[in-house]
Amino acid sequence: MAQADRRGSAAQKILIGLALLSALGLAAVIVGRILIGGMPAEGLPAEQRTGLLFQVGRLFELGQPSDFLWYGLALLTLGSAAGVAFSRNIIYSAFSLLGAFLGVAAMYVYLGAPFLAVTQVLIYIGGVLVLILFAVMLTSHIRDVKVTNSALGLGPGAVVLLACLGLLTVVAGGTPWKQLPAAPLTDRTADIGTAFLSTYLLPFEIASVILLATLIGAIVIARKDDPADAGGPPSPADGQRTRAEAPSQETR
């Protein structure tokens, strides 16, 4: 059946895409090691680093070599975010989101928050993004709809984009924010754990209530109906219901 083929091909595309991206990530790690020779630790003087970038940076005396890498990461983050915002194909948007999430995780490493970076990768990429990909796949290829989502109100969108960008850049760049003296980066993961179970005990417990309630809420909305419930008013798509719901079982 043509429809099933299309669905299969979408899944294949996504799998191939994921494989390519993992390969890309691996390559990035290798290239990164060659360029900077390990994690960007600010404590280590540049002379002792073996990475290529450090040598180049020392040669031209242009700021910290790790800064160059930062600009690259910022470019990755914002380029991917722009891909999410501007791409006309929802699948490309979803994959661009991966770049944005990875870039933000790298920012956390720069800011001395490695635990947060790992959490970002695990939850955003491992959870949210996979969920989004499933939704994209399930909702755009089951039916014979065009996957493209042409922009609605591009004019107002551009106005908001430029207004936000201008205003927030002035605020972010112009404010003389209070600055602490630079402190050496230390691993504070254990402190976070302690804080969660002492100072932040109440928010921690409330977060668990939220997760439970949301879980049940999501099940209430998405689960297959009880036989007892089937007597309710028929939905417009009752005929195709069984076929459409079969793949949604996989998401749970």
């Binding site: 975010a81 908001v160 984009l161 430029l162 960008l165």
Partner: peptide
């Protein structure tokens, strides 16, 4: 970067 990310998200 955060400001730009916010603006792109809003767009």
């Amino acid at each position: 970067v955060a400001a730009a990310l916010f603006s792109l998200g809003a767009f």
